[in-house]
Amino acid sequence: MPASRLGSWAGALLPALLSLLISTAPASASPGAPVEAPPRRNSLEARLSWGVTAAGASRAYRKGATGQGVVVAMIDTGLTAAKLDMFSHLSPHSTDLVADRRLDDGDRAHGEQVASLLAARVDGAGTYGIAYGATLLPIRADRDGSCLRVCAFDPEVLAEAIDYAVARGARVIGLPVAAQRPIPAIEPALARAVASGAVIVAAAGNDGGSQPVWPARYAADPRFGASMIVAGASTPRGRPAAWTNKAGATEDRYLVAPGQQVIVGCTTRTCRLTSGTSYSVAYAAGALAVLLSRAPELSTSDAAGLLLDNANDLASRGPDPATGRGRLDVDRALRALDH
C-alpha cells in the first residue's frame, strides 16, 4: 500500500491563501509551456511550496541547480492525462506496467501528489516541485482495481518497475510504498539497481514504529544500504512527525524531510493538505537530483552521502535510532559540495 494517508481532508482548505490563489493564477500562460525561470521569492506559489524552503533548496536555484538532466523514477500510481501539463520534463518512457488494466475508477491521486512535490513546473500558480528541472519518469505499478479501496502493489510488479527504471537511465528511484514484511521478490532488482549506480529513496512508513517498513528497512542490509535513503516525515516546524516511523536499524541512511501538512492538488480555488512519508520521498529524491545537476560528475551514492552527512542533527550528535541523520538540508549539502 502507499505510505501515505490518502483521503484525509481534515484542515484541507486554506481560506487565507485560496482567495489569493484565484487572483494570482496566470491568465495567459499556455498549459504545457515550460517555465524554467526560478520561482519568485515570497510569491504565493513559493509560500504554498513551503516544503522546498524547509528542505533548504531555495538557494540552489540561484546557482542553476534545479535537477535538470537527471532522470528520477517514481514507482507509484502514475499520472492521469489531465495532469501531464504540470511537468516541464516528463520522460517519454513513462509507463503503466499493468498492460491490460481494466478497473481504473478509484482514487489514485497519490502518484500525482508525490510527483508534483518532486517535479511540478514553476508557472506562477499552485505549487512547484523541489527538483522542477528534473526529468520525471512515472512508473505506474499498482494492482489493477486496488485503488478502488487502498492502492496495493504486487512484489513481482515492483521488481519489474525497479528494473524498468534502471533500464531507462534513472539515477534516483523513489519507492513511496510500504509493507510489513521483507519482500524477497524485489531483492534481485534492488541488487541490479545498486550495480547500476542508482540510489533508491524509500518511505519510512506512517505507523510511528521504532523501525521503518519494507522496502525501506533494506537500508540496514549491507547488500543495499550504501545505495539507499530512508525518508521519514518532518512537520512544518522541522521536527519529526509524531506518526512517522523511526530510523531504527537504518539510522545511518535515514533522514526526515517535509511530510506533514504539505500542500498538493491546487486549483484556481482550492488546495489540499496531506501527510505521509511518501511525500518525504519526493523531497529527498528531488534533493538528490538538485545535487546531481549541480555536479553531474558526482556519483549518485556520493550525492546521497552528502545529503546524509549534512543533515541537521535533531537529537544526539551523529546518527541515532529515532531521527537517524537528522533533517534534510539541501543548502548545507551544496555548500559542502562547493567547498
Rank of each mutant, 00 (worst) to 15 (best):
V98N: 11
A216Y: 02
C151W: 07
L337F: 11
R269M: 15
E156Q: 08
A220E: 03
A242H: 12
R335K: 09
D96F: 01
A220Y: 05
V98M: 11
V330M: 08
A257V: 02
W9G: 13
E45G: 14
Y61K: 09
I229L: 05
A257H: 00
V150R: 14
P138M: 05
R143G: 05
E297A: 14
I22P: 01
G169A: 02
S8M: 13
V166P: 07
A55P: 07
D221F: 05
G276H: 02
Y283K: 09
S227R: 09
P258Q: 04
A29P: 12
A216F: 02
D85K: 08
V122E: 06
K246E: 15
D123L: 10
G205C: 04
R332A: 11
A152R: 07
P319L: 09
K246W: 12
G238E: 08
A311L: 01
P26K: 13
Y254D: 07
R41V: 14
T268N: 14
S146R: 01
V98F: 12
V213W: 11
S196M: 05
G305R: 09
P296K: 09
S8Q: 11
P236S: 12
V72D: 01
R41D: 14
A81D: 15
Y283A: 06
L84N: 13
V114K: 01
R223Q: 05
T267V: 03
A257Q: 00
S8V: 15
S43P: 10
Q68D: 13
I162D: 10
E297L: 12
A33R: 12
G32E: 12
V330I: 11
V35F: 15
D252G: 15
G78C: 02
R143Q: 07
A152K: 03
A115D: 02
V71M: 06
S196I: 01
D163H: 05
P319W: 12
T235N: 12
H339F: 13
S4V: 15
T277R: 00
L273G: 10
V230E: 02
T268G: 15
L118H: 01
S94C: 11
S275I: 06
T24S: 14
S116N: 01
R325L: 04
L307Q: 03
P236G: 14
R143D: 06
Y279K: 04
A242W: 14
G129Y: 10
G78W: 00
I186H: 00
P215M: 11
M228H: 02
S227E: 03
G276M: 08
G169K: 04
R149T: 09
L136C: 06
R217C: 06
L291F: 10
G276W: 01
W50C: 08
L90R: 04
A247V: 05
G265K: 12
T80K: 06
L158N: 02
I183D: 00
A125H: 12
Q180A: 07
V262D: 03
A195M: 10
G69H: 11
L334W: 03
K63H: 09
L79Y: 08
A159D: 04
G324M: 07
L308N: 08
R192M: 04
T244W: 07
A304T: 11
P212R: 10
R102M: 03
G111S: 06
D76I: 03
A125S: 11
L175Q: 00
A233L: 01
R171C: 03
R327E: 12
G69F: 05
L90Q: 04
A16V: 13
I200E: 00
G209T: 10
K63Y: 06
P222S: 08
D320T: 11
H93Q: 13
R317Y: 13
P176A: 07
